[in-house]
Design a protein around this nucleic acid. Structure first.
Lengths: 228, 228
DNA sequence: CATGAGTGACCGATCGATCGGTAGATTAGG
DNA sequence: CCTAATCTACCGATCGATCGGTCACTCATG
């Protein structure tokens, strides 16, 4: 919702306009496919069907576009993680829910997730610090869940920090290979990753409900597949 | 060693020259830090202490530099994986050895591993197809180990392909956060990840020896840390 | 006097971003 | 209800800077 202290010119809080949406969509596609630095503003404009001059009617800078994409990933991820921690009680159920949602999100918002994951280094140092901080907030939620599970002896791992990082790496990978046309349904993919995660911390799915069943799944293919 | 069908001008197979090494080192550093597209040849030249013209005395194209880095990662990785599969017998020991070596390599050759992981999309389509094929060869070795472990009932996972991908994602992540100055020794990090991997496939370290103990570990800090 | 190592100047192309301007819809005043 | 002012949405042209890469040339060494 809020976009920091930055002001986007000629933009009032209201209904998003058609061209505006087309520009943002084009950006996500191109940044995910060719990278931030590898994408020119002329490409973005062409993909969105406008001129470069018109592009700057809607957008402040190229970096601002990248920041909006990243916020659109990190903010909902963190919000969902917070909700899970407050809603769910048992450690196994919490971890399962975190994994399920993370996988689900990275599959549905595949391109934006790729961009968020890989383009942090393309940001200016101030913006980079800000986004790293936000990412750390999200990871800290996971870490707390793992640490709690370990201290209460539900999970058994040598180093909770390392285990958390390993878990996150495993789940984030989805965005880099998932294809909506593949043989597995997304729901099943979410459950399988949750099971792998529980195995990793030497816990079992003993009556732990699947959170992904409660998620309203959108139509399978939201964006064209990009990765070769 | 061999560099494909591409011909590097003014280069004969022999002892690497000092300037040549400096250029390659500068490349790995800069590509890992700012990305391939985000790095200019003037930066590479400056970092290596030469002019741009001198740079092209040693190098064919910028893309060629990237290809050399990637080959320098994928080729040794695959060679080591092959050696492990032929040398080691039991499935648990094989998986453990694969993980240990992968983690060790991604920590020691951190920057080159990051570049290999993240810059495939920056290659021209021919070169990209070639590198993806080589990466697939490496992953296929892992997959076979996991599949064998599952069929002989040593490993217990629902889908061996998914499990393999998850394992690889987990282990590759090392390169993105490892710091030689951190509290954990690399040997311990390798063992911990091997344990996490064994847990993931519901196997245990029952008398499985650590391969990493047999590896000659180089001096701790080979390259400056890059990731924020 | 041939060769490898290196230089300074420079190529056309493309980069992100900005300029003044305009067609058409919306609004305000009399 | 008509008109003038304002606003949104865009355009063609172009800015200075930087891009990857090349050229003819020098210089030290064996």
């Amino acid at each position: 919702m809020e976009s920091g202290t930055r002001t986007t010119p000629t933009r009032r809080a209201g209904r998003p306009r058609l061209t505006d949406v087309r520009i943002r969509d084009a950006c996500v596609r191109l940044f995910a496919q060719k990278g931030f630095q590898g994408t020119g503003i002329r490409e973005i404009a062409a993909e969105a069907g406008v001129t470069t001059a018109a592009l700057y009617h809607y957008v402040g800078t190229k970096e601002e576009l990248l920041l909006e994409i990243m916020s659109g990933v990190l903010d909902p991820l963190t919000a969902a993680a917070r909700r899970i921690v407050t809603d769910v009680d048992r450690s196994e159920a919490r971890l399962s829910a975190l994994v399920e949602h993370h996988v689900w999100f990275h599959a549905v918002h595949q391109l934006a997730s790729i961009v968020t994951d890989t383009e942090i280094r393309s940001l200016s140092s101030d913006a980079r610090a800000e986004m790293i901080a936000r990412r750390d907030v999200y990871e800290a939620i996971w870490r707390r869940v793992v640490v709690e599970g370990v201290t209460e002896d539900t999970f058994r791992v040598e180093d909770p920090r390392i285990a958390t990082t390993a878990l996150l790496q495993m789940c984030t990978g989805i965005a880099h290979w998932y294809a909506p046309t593949g043989p597995l349904t997304l729901t099943r993919l979410c459950r399988m990753h949750a099971d792998l995660a529980l195995s990793m911390v030497r816990a079992a799915r003993n009556g732990v409900p699947l959170r992904v069943d409660a998620l309203e799944l959108p139509s399978p293919a939201r964006e064209p597949s990009v990765q070769g």
